[in-house]
Design a protein around this nucleic acid. Structure first.
Length: 130
DNA sequence: AACCTGACGTTGG
DNA sequence: CCCAACGCCAGGT
């Protein structure tokens, strides 16, 4: 049977390391994370690893989206709503289950590439409706 | 080992 | 924008 403390996989560790390093208010795709973890073509593994992260562990799983910016869970599902709530909580706008990666994507923002991360494009922390 | 499944990705119509 | 078809990889049956 399975021992209580398994999963010493270096790949899992690499993936988690990348995920926890996603800046607050930013998002990244499964494939992007896999690549950054030195595991190209292994987007599915990223999803698998996230699915095994024990609740309570401090891992920003909600910052991980599909390559097109859509939330991976079925629209309306519990996990889906939770993810939307977390993202909205840190200023990431989710519209129809989708996030604009050019706007909030980690290293995918044109303004970042052209002007640096400090470009005043993303007005963060707009509490309630102005 | 064959077959199915899925928190994925890309391409083409 | 929707959909189908592949490609890809790890686990489960």
């Amino acid at each position: 049977m399975k021992s209580v403390d398994d999963e010493p996989k270096p790949e899992h560790a690499a993936i988690l390391r990348v995920i926890v390093s996603i800046p607050r208010g930013r998002v990244a795709s499964y494939g992007e994370i896999a690549k950054r973890a030195g595991l190209p073509k292994r987007a599915r593994l990223v999803g698998r690893v996230l699915g095994e992260v024990p609740a309570g562990m401090d891992v920003p799983w909600y910052r991980v989206l599909r390559s097109d910016g859509r939330i991976a869970f079925p629209a309306g599902s519990r996990a889906f709503r939770t993810q939307v709530r977390h993202l909205a909580g840190e200023g990431v706008l989710v519209r129809n289950g989708r996030v604009d990666l050019l706007m909030h994507g980690w290293e995918r923002n044109m303004d970042d590439l052209l002007w640096g991360p400090s470009a005043p494009v993303v007005r963060r922390r707009s509490r309630k409706s102005p």
